[in-house]
């Protein structure tokens, strides 16, 4: 075999492998789309729906539709979602956006102190942040319940079953982001800020007018990563949010899949409707995220 043929064989093998792998990866997506258009509630199992129906989509969008109750007589009834599932998507977006913005605010200021200021126990605090954050949120639920129950008695917007309460809980998880942003701040030469000080900027002005604008790339990364993780957060949201009009996407989507009655069609429609925009946004910001992941995880 010549060298040329050898490379050709390798190329074919590589393409073959990647394409097969891609099919395995992508088939679930296709099946979900098909399940959302398929009449009746079946677990995703076909590439194309046998009987096309828009009922699930109507339900998810909160549009009333007719369902045949008795096939023999053709009797129908009107079905409309009590809480339009799209509301859950909107709740999730709202909660994730506000939480992510709050995370950026809290972690960038803290990261500034850790990166640029000197104070007692700086290194030990940094280490403690990382280690304590390893405690799984799920197991803090009892404590969250106690806290929110208490705050709810005094400030009713921050109690149990409020989105503000959930956001407040989410804002505690900042330590990973502090580390990421601190790492980025440290790559910015200190002379930038020194120069600004000579130009007459106060420390706060230096932070706001020099360091923050220069750090926009890492803020984009932190924002996207925290946004995605809050969109997916299930256990805390499911405990804190009790009434269905407060639910997030994760809680709502899971509510379609009771042990007794699994409403796959509605779930699929909701999954497509809410999954697609998030995926598209992620792919648009891909370059940022990848850069952030590699620089955050791999220190040069």
């Amino acid at each position: 075999m010549t060298a040329h043929q050898k490379i050709l064989v390798r190329k074919v093998a590589a393409h073959g492998f990647v394409v097969c792998f891609l099919i395995l990866v992508l088939v679930p997506f296709v099946m979900v789309i098909s399940a959302s258009f398929r009449q009746g509630d079946f677990a995703p199992s076909r590439l194309l729906p046998d009987k096309v129906s828009l009922d699930h989509w109507k339900f998810v969008l909160g549009i009333p539709y007719q369902e045949v109750v008795n096939p023999a007589t053709g009797e129908t009834r009107t079905i409309k979602a009590g809480t339009p599932p799209l509301l859950w998507f909107w709740n999730s977006i709202k909660i994730s956006l506000i939480s992510s913005a709050g995370i950026i605010f809290l972690s960038s200021t803290a990261a500034y102190a850790f990166a640029r200021l000197r104070f007692k126990f700086r290194t030990s605090t940094l280490g403690a942040l990382l280690i304590l954050q390893m405690f799984p949120m799920v197991l803090s639920l009892v404590a969250y319940y106690v806290i929110l129950d208490f705050t709810g008695q005094h400030l009713k917007w921050f109690g149990l079953n409020t989105q503000a309460g959930l956001i407040m809980v989410y804002l505690g998880g900042i330590s990973n982001y502090i580390w990421m942003i601190k790492g980025y701040f440290e790559t910015i030469p200190a002379t930038m800020e020194e120069s600004a000080r000579i130009d007459g900027a106060s420390q706060f002005q230096t932070f706001v007018r020099i360091l923050l604008p220069m750090s926009l790339p890492i803020f984009a990364v932190v924002f996207i990563l925290s946004f995605i993780s809050y969109m997916s957060e299930y256990p805390v949201a499911s405990v804190v949010l009790q009434s269905s009009d407060n639910w997030t996407l994760a809680v709502g989507a899971n509510s379609f899949l009771y042990e007794q009655e699994k409403l796959w069609g509605r779930f699929a429609a909701l999954a497509v409707l809410s999954g697609v925009p998030i995926t598209v946004v992620f792919l648009l910001c891909q370059r940022f995220v990848i850069g952030g992941l590699t620089s955050g995880g791999v220190k040069e």
């Binding site: 990647v18 199992s45 996407l249 994760a250 989507a253 899949l257 779930f267 999954a271 992620f282 792919l283």
Partner: peptide, 29 residues
């Protein structure tokens, strides 16, 4: 590369529930 990243982009809650359906013992794909 873009296509291979897709599973990372979809909210994990949704993907996990989708797989719950795909691996359904009787009717799953």
């Amino acid at each position: 590369r873009t296509l291979l990243i897709l599973p990372y982009a979809v909210p994990a809650v949704l993907s996990i529930l989708i797989f719950k359906g795909l691996f359904n013992q009787q009717f799953g794909a």
